[in-house]
């Protein structure tokens, strides 16, 4: 089984600062890590490989520094790593990113399973995974919390919903995006890290993956960010302590005050 795990390098903080003038993330001085959800994707890829044999290739689109993320993926046990890096990839939105990654996957060839994290913590869109599936015309199962069965023909997985899950079957090749309930990512090993240090990362430019130039980077990105702002903090809830007969009255009048009832 040939598995591709798509990983993104992101700033190591959930409280990313935003430059108010450009409305973009301030990345300077912030350590870069593999998007935490992608760590679950890597782990799931490795587990499936350990069960079925095959190989796991980590794929990343990013600047040359993103090589560090791929090296980390290798140190965890991935067999190969591909970095899509080209100035013309810069400024990509989710559509252009999904397109570029799909071209990368095409170039890796004969891929059976693509695993993505459910979303990246710096963008939180959750669009790239399904976008890739769409462009490759593959079935897609999002928010996977458990892969129950998988072989080279089909997959059965749990898609996590609020308060439950759907059991979904699809044919393979396919794409899944995973949530953090799916596994507990392993730690790297020293020998893995040493091998990763020596390993060569495959680097592909736009030309290497035969991209249509108007579908990548800024050119291929219809998204226009008008304004980025931090959402207002959620107010603290009210708690009515005591036995229901004594507290229901208070609850009702609070709901009436808020205009809910």
């Amino acid at each position: 089984m040939k598995i591709v795990v798509c990983i993104k390098q992101v700033p190591d903080t959930t409280e990313v600062k935003i430059n108010p003038e450009t409305n973009t993330l301030v990345r300077e001085g912030v350590e870069s890590i593999i998007n935490p959800f992608d760590m679950y994707a890597i782990e799931e890829g490795l587990r499936i490989k350990e069960r079925l044999n095959g190989e796991v290739v980590a794929l990343c689109m990013g600047p040359p520094q993103a090589e560090a993320a791929l090296k980390e993926a290798l140190s965890l046990g991935c067999d190969g790593a591909v970095l899509l890096t080209d100035r013309s990839f810069a400024g990509a939105d989710t559509l252009a990113t999904a397109y570029t990654l799909s071209r990368g996957i095409k170039s890796i060839k004969d891929v059976d399973l693509i695993i993505c994290g459910k979303q990246a913590i710096d963008g939180d869109t959750a669009q790239v995974g399904p976008g890739i599936a769409e462009m490759l015309d593959l079935p897609c199962i999002t928010y996977v919390g458990k892969v129950e069965e998988i072989d080279d023909k089909h997959i059965k997985a749990y898609r996590m919903m609020e308060g439950g899950y759907n059991v979904i079957e699809a044919s393979v090749p396919c794409l899944i995006t995973v949530v953090k309930e799916i596994n507990e990512p392993r730690l790297p090993s020293l020998r893995g890290k040493m091998n990763a240090m020596k390993a060569q990362i495959t680097k592909w430019s736009a030309a290497d993956i035969a991209c249509e130039v108007d579908r990548i980077g800024q050119m291929g990105s219809p998204t226009w960010v008008r304004k980025i702002f931090a959402p207002p903090k959620r107010e603290k809830g009210m708690i009515f302590k005591g036995e229901p007969p004594d507290t229901v009255g208070g609850l009702l009048s609070a709901l009436k005050d808020k205009g809910v009832l």
């Binding site: 392993r186 730690l187 790297p188 090993s189 020293l190 020998r191 893995g192």
Partner: peptide, 11 residues
């Protein structure tokens, strides 16, 4: 077990 899996007993 974690220390073992991480190769730390090899050092």
């Amino acid at each position: 077990k974690l220390l073992a899996d991480s190769d730390l007993f090899r050092v």
